[in-house]
Simulated scan of single mutants.
Amino acid sequence: MCGRFAQIDTREKYLESLRPDVEFVGGLDGEPVGRYNVSPGTRVLLLNQREDKLHLDPVLWGYQPAWAKEAGRPPLINARVETAASGRMFKPLWTSGRALVMADGWYEWKKDPDNAKIKQPYFIYHENKEPIFFAAISRFHPDALDAPEDDGFVIVTAASDKGLVDIHDRRPLVMTREASLEWLSPDTTPERAEELAKDFVIPADEFTFHPVGKAVGNIHNDNAGIIERIDNPAV
Results as ranks from 00 to 15, higher is better:
residue 69 K to L: 06
residue 171 R to E: 07
residue 88 R to W: 12
residue 21 D to L: 04
residue 71 A to T: 03
residue 131 P to A: 13
residue 2 C to D: 01
residue 220 H to E: 15
residue 18 L to F: 07
residue 71 A to D: 08
residue 74 P to D: 11
residue 19 R to C: 01
residue 47 L to Y: 00
residue 179 A to M: 03
residue 16 E to N: 08
residue 165 V to I: 12
residue 84 A to C: 13
residue 131 P to S: 08
residue 110 K to F: 13
residue 31 E to R: 15
residue 190 P to H: 13
residue 90 F to Q: 01
residue 12 E to Y: 13
residue 16 E to W: 06
residue 16 E to H: 12
residue 93 L to M: 15
residue 68 A to Y: 14
residue 136 A to I: 01
residue 169 D to S: 10
residue 124 I to W: 15
residue 95 T to M: 15
residue 142 P to E: 05
residue 149 E to M: 10
residue 213 G to W: 13
residue 204 A to V: 09
residue 49 Q to Y: 02
residue 21 D to R: 07
residue 201 V to A: 05
residue 5 F to L: 05
residue 26 G to M: 06
residue 41 G to A: 08
residue 4 R to I: 07
residue 157 T to W: 02
residue 106 W to L: 07
residue 106 W to K: 06
residue 48 N to F: 04
residue 184 L to H: 07
residue 68 A to Q: 12
residue 164 L to K: 04
residue 42 T to R: 14
residue 45 L to A: 10
residue 156 V to S: 05
residue 82 E to N: 11
residue 158 A to H: 08
residue 221 N to E: 14
residue 2 C to W: 02
residue 202 I to M: 04
residue 114 D to S: 12
residue 125 Y to H: 15
residue 115 N to M: 14
residue 166 D to T: 10
residue 117 K to P: 13
residue 156 V to T: 01
residue 53 K to G: 07
residue 151 D to M: 03
residue 24 F to K: 00
residue 17 S to I: 01
residue 175 M to E: 06
residue 36 Y to C: 09
residue 179 A to K: 01
residue 101 V to L: 05
